[in-house]
Design a protein around this nucleic acid. Sequence first.
DNA 1: CTTGATTTCAAACAACTGTTTGATACAATC
DNA 2: GATTGTATCAAACAGTTGTTTGAAATCAAG
Lengths: 213, 213
Amino acid sequence: MSTDADTTPQRIIEAAGEIFAAKGFEAATVREICTRAEANIAAVNYHFGDKQRLYIEAVKRAHHGRELLFPMPEWGPEVTAETKLADFILTLLKRMTSPDSGWEGELMSREIARPTEACAELARESIRPHFAVLNEILAELIPAADQLERHLTAFSIVGQCLHYKFADPVIRQLVSAEEYEGYHVELLAQHITDFSLRSLRARADNHKPPARR
Amino acid sequence: MSTDADTTPQRIIEAAGEIFAAKGFEAATVREICTRAEANIAAVNYHFGDKQRLYIEAVKRAHHGRELLFPMPEWGPEVTAETKLADFILTLLKRMTSPDSGWEGELMSREIARPTEACAELARESIRPHFAVLNEILAELIPAADQLERHLTAFSIVGQCLHYKFADPVIRQLVSAEEYEGYHVELLAQHITDFSLRSLRARADNHKPPARR
DNA sequence: CTTGATTTCAAACAACTGTTTGATACAATC
DNA sequence: GATTGTATCAAACAGTTGTTTGAAATCAAG
């Protein structure tokens, strides 16, 4: 029995991911999941215990799949911090809004928006290391900043990326169809990198926030 | 019969807002709503038709309340574009994450994250004018930018603000309790304004995006 | 007070939920 | 071939859901 065989639990976890992502935990029914997985209704409880356990497994699999598909690059010592930041943004964006992603990104964002108590821990463990990586990059780019400013800056960068996932249905209504059509990952990553690097360079030069009013 | 009287539909719409915000549309039950509103179970169907219509009314009321509580300031001709941007960011942040907000912000963000087909129109109509205002401000700040760049820049700014609403439970896990305690609206607005204005000024000076790699 | 419409209420409704059951089929082991 | 443990299945389970019903209560005129 190979690990990626077309076994019943595998088919269920796959169908569960799609339907949980499309409808959320409450609205998704195990009947629909089992129908799509071509399995019996009792299969969910037999193989996973209950609906919630299946949900957790689906989320885990989703995250694992994203991590495998779009891994954070390992940078050598010669790579500049600016390039690292560009890579970081591109990778994050790819994970969030990959055109052929399917349901995984949707599921992850839904989970972040309303974290199940059982999954909060997973989200924490998977997000925290990325947050640490970004903070190390920022420590190189704006060494004069203290931890608070580094954190807020990290949130500014991550926020720009996640926005295209969270607010996607709204964005679709705000710009023309042709313009939205052109929103490829590379374009968005380029813009966010440019926008952020301009700010970071100015911050590094000035050693002070700009005067206001 | 005064408009803000303690009438049954009013009590129901209020309880509905709280519970929809806390649990989402599917998980919220009309029984719980009616119990909290101290109304009979049949009251929802009698006064609103069905559960979905009640949900729409609750979202409408939520948005109306936020708009009244934190109105966009009307700027005179002497106000600089930088000040307008600072005001815009502060207002947006206040609406998203006001400490005494109660349920309205939660309900709005939930609606943005997964818009009900019936509410998409409302979200569109309420967000589009704000998006237009921000674009006018950006047209003043980076006149050399074309529409695409203005739009992406607008999303960069809005994304930074909304992040503190959407990702709040995650943010809480990433920074220490004391640091999170200090995340007041004014501090966040100040940072986002600084971060963005630095970038916009550099863009206005350079007339070109910065070179990369 | 009487009338007539509006609002409230307890009870029941039909439909659907996640879950359990016990029988059945299947494979491997002795 | 009998036995054992696993997997699948149709059927039923108990509970909850949104909604409906028809009678009682309430209220505003005539």
